[in-house]
Simulated assay, not measured.
Amino acid sequence: MRVPLILFFLFILSVPVSAQTADSLLMDIPYYNFGFEVVNKNEAIPDGWFNFSPASKSNIQSDSLIRHSGKRSVVLGVDADDSKGHAGIAYALPARYVGNELTLKAWLKHEDVLNFVSLFISMTDSTGTEVQAATLDDKQLSGTKDWKLYELRLSIPANVKTIYVGGNIKGPGKLWIDDVQLLIDGTDISQSRLKED
């Protein structure tokens, strides 16, 4: 039942959001904003990340008061009276790294979550079709819980063009995410080798 949720999120990604396309999200950024420390002047969402459920009444913003480390985290919220609401934030990367396995690690904290919070990895091919995915949905992380490190691992198929990573909340409550780390075959992505063109 959880796989269609990922497919729904990927469908939302295919809809233009503020004139952004998948290609524009894949432009070379000189850093990885996985600590959510950098926020654009006119945007509440940390730089490099995007809201993949813009039609929802959810609230996504940088948080300088509650964080695992550094000066900021990101918080996703759904109002208490919105039982079917959801919020999600994602980061898109070109699959240009040499390696066979991607590991996503992130610190999560959640409060008064009615349904669940999750992390996800989604890999798509050149047509935008999902070819590989992993989530924490089956853990049904709900209620209130202090910071805890969670991890997902996924093999990288040869035909992958784009990698999406992120987190989401389904139903009322709040989810904080901080200190995201991506590793290719155990090496931090910032130190991973790139494929030759």
Rank of each mutant, 00 (worst) to 15 (best):
I66H: 04
Q61E: 11
W49R: 06
A95I: 04
N59R: 11
A90P: 04
L65A: 10
L65H: 11
Y32D: 08
L93D: 05
S58A: 15
K71D: 12
I89Q: 01
A55Y: 05
Y31S: 14
K84E: 12
V78S: 05
K71L: 07
L65T: 09
D63F: 03
D79Y: 02
P54R: 13
R67G: 03
R96A: 11
S58V: 08
V39F: 06
I60M: 12
N51C: 04
H68K: 14
S58W: 00
S83A: 14
V78T: 08
K57I: 09
G70N: 10
V38Y: 09
D81R: 03
P46I: 11
Y91G: 02
N33Y: 04
P94Y: 01
F52K: 05
S83Y: 13
N59L: 12
A90V: 08
E37V: 11
P46D: 09
S69K: 10
G85F: 04
Y32I: 08
K84Y: 13
D82T: 10
N33E: 07
S58H: 11
P54N: 12
G48W: 10
F52V: 11
Q61L: 05
G85R: 02
Y31I: 10
N59A: 04
F50N: 08
S83V: 13
I66A: 04
D81A: 10
D47S: 15
I89Y: 02
V75N: 00
E43P: 02
R96I: 15
S53D: 14
D79G: 05
N40I: 02
H86W: 07
V74S: 00
I89W: 00
S73R: 03
K41D: 13
K57D: 15
S83H: 11
D82H: 07
V39Y: 05
F36A: 02
A95D: 07
A92W: 02
Y31L: 13
D79N: 09
A44N: 14
D63R: 03
R72Y: 06
S56I: 07
K71P: 00
L93M: 14
D82I: 12
Q61T: 07
A90Q: 06
W49L: 09
A80N: 12
S53C: 14
V39E: 04
S53G: 12
K57F: 12
V74L: 07
I89G: 01
R72I: 00
F52A: 08
R67D: 01
V78P: 05
R67K: 15
R72L: 00
R67C: 10
S83K: 13
N42T: 10
E37N: 12
N42M: 11
S69Y: 05
F52T: 09
G35K: 01
V74T: 11
P46R: 05
P46C: 10
Y31N: 07
V38M: 06
R72N: 15
I89L: 15
S83I: 14
S53I: 15
F52C: 09
A44E: 15
Y91V: 00
I89D: 00
I60K: 04
S83F: 14
V74C: 03
P46V: 06
N59P: 00
L76T: 03
G77S: 13
N40T: 07
Y91A: 01
G35I: 01
F52P: 10
R72Q: 12
I66R: 07
N42V: 07
S62H: 08
K84F: 13
I89A: 02
N51Q: 04
V78C: 10
I45K: 04
R96Q: 14
D79C: 00
A55D: 07
F52H: 14
D81N: 14
